[in-house]
Simulated scan of single mutants.
Amino acid sequence: MDSRTLYLFSGAASPVFDVARVIEEAQADGWDVCLGLTPTAARWLAHSLDGLAALTGHPVRWDYRLPGEPDMWPRADAIVVAPATFSTVNQWALGITDKWLVGVVAEGIGKGTPMAVMPCVNSAFAAHPQFERSLETLRGAGVRVLYGEGGFVPHEPGQGDPTAYPWRDALDAVVDVLHVSA
């Protein structure tokens, strides 16, 4: 694959601590990776942000730029949102864009940007009736949702294993979505 730009957007779930390895995997797949985080994920990774920026060659983003400020990133060819928290999934589906990351992916639907999302939620959050409605909304908008068999399977509260998060599935899915939209 020619070098294409992948926006890797991650929320505050424990698999985010493995994001440097995932960036390297995506780069090995030929992606120019730009890392975006929710504000909480940025706080969790505060000690690593400079290193992550050096790894990607782009500033790590988590907040809206000021009006008139230039965008420091190239245009996205595709976006992966993983790990996507309960809050991120629901805000995205409902169009609540107070978080920069959610604003970009909400707009991405209208722009036709190929996107894949892999939630990372426990079974208690997954049982909330809004969660499944939000996943259906995103599917209906053309987002590849990796949830359940062939994606992320919820765990009991406090029982998740961040090393078992299926990052590779998310990276593979965005390639599939990109080829389908091409």
Rank of each mutant, 00 (worst) to 15 (best):
L6D: 01
F9A: 15
S10K: 10
A12M: 07
P15N: 12
F17A: 12
F17I: 12
F17V: 10
D18T: 10
V19Q: 03
V19E: 01
R21G: 13
E25I: 05
A26G: 10
A26C: 10
Q27G: 04
Q27P: 03
Q27M: 08
Q27N: 03
A28T: 11
D29M: 15
D29F: 13
W31T: 00
D32M: 06
C34V: 15
G36R: 10
G36D: 08
L37V: 08
T38H: 03
A41K: 05
W44C: 07
W44S: 13
L45I: 08
L45T: 09
H47L: 09
S48H: 14
S48G: 00
G51S: 14
G51H: 05
L52T: 07
L55G: 03
T56C: 13
T56S: 06
H58G: 06
R61L: 13
R61N: 04
Y64W: 14
L66T: 10
E69F: 04
E69N: 06
E69H: 08
P70N: 11
D71E: 15
D71G: 12
W73Y: 11
W73H: 15
P74H: 06
A78M: 09
I79K: 01
A82E: 02
A84C: 07
S87F: 01
T88Q: 05
T88E: 03
V89C: 07
N90M: 00
N90G: 00
N90D: 00
N90Y: 00
Q91A: 02
Q91N: 04
A93R: 01
I96H: 03
I96M: 08
V102Q: 04
V102I: 15
V102D: 03
G103Y: 02
V104H: 07
V104R: 14
V104G: 02
A106T: 15
A106D: 14
A106P: 00
E107D: 14
E107L: 10
G108W: 05
G108P: 07
I109V: 15
I109K: 12
G110N: 13
K111S: 13
G112I: 09
P114A: 10
P114G: 09
A116C: 13
M118W: 06
C120H: 12
S123W: 01
S123L: 06
A124K: 14
Q130S: 14
Q130L: 12
E132Y: 00
L135Y: 03
L135G: 01
L138M: 14
L138C: 08
R139D: 06
A141G: 12
A141L: 10
G142V: 11
V143E: 05
V143G: 08
L146G: 03
L146A: 03
L146T: 02
G148R: 04
E149A: 15
E149H: 13
E149W: 08
G150T: 09
G150C: 09
F152T: 03
V153H: 05
H155L: 05
E156F: 04
E156L: 14
P157L: 11
Q159L: 14
A164Y: 02
A164H: 06
A164E: 13
Y165I: 09
W167S: 04
R168M: 09
D169L: 13
D169E: 11
D169I: 05
D169N: 01
L171R: 00
A173D: 07
V174K: 01
V175K: 02
D176Y: 07
L178Y: 13
L178V: 09
V180I: 12
S181Q: 12
S181E: 12
S181T: 14
A182V: 02
A182N: 04
